[in-house]
Write a protein that binds this DNA or RNA. Sequence first.
DNA 1: CTCCGGATTCGT
DNA 2: CGAATCCGGAGT
Length: 180
Amino acid sequence: MKKLPRDFYDRDTQQVAKALLGKQLVHQQKVGRIVEVEAYLGPHDLAAHSARGLTKRTAVMFGPPGHAYVYLIYGMYHCMNVVTEPEGHASAVLIRALEPLQAIGQRTQGPGLLCQAMAISRAQNAVDLVTDPHFFIANAPAVPSEDIVAKPRIGVDYAGEWKDSPLRFYIKGNRFVSKR
DNA sequence: CTCCGGATTCGT
DNA sequence: CGAATCCGGAGT
């Protein structure tokens, strides 16, 4: 099982988002195949947390690529992202759903549920996925572009002209994708 | 310090 | 459709 290198994350966020489909998210002994993601492009993207500028919470997004950005949402769930593009770009990819592969005993469709199933919380915020021994993303065959569907992101109606941008990507026909 | 609302999920 | 539940960010 080979970890994705820094270079993988250090490029255009939409490219990283699509390339992450099919890869394996690993935390401790748990493994899940990434089947759904969303791209958050940077401060100009009104759906992105970094659109509010550099704050204590969003500092990770402004940092180097390959780090995890984990935050608490609605007081009860966590969402996990991977930081992309060179330091200073403040972009990231949200992991939205996994296909359970190993040691996962709970549902993994939806960003909150997958963090619960993978035991990911704010304790993992800012962890470097390129160097951490227990929390990383492992390489796996790429999903062919004809099997990738692009749709508007979920739950970002507040994002004005950005709310309908097709920045959600998932594997066509995969039963673990969070919504239809 | 107070107030508001959220990259969700579940139950009614 | 509304509740649950709590922290970050903005405003006083």
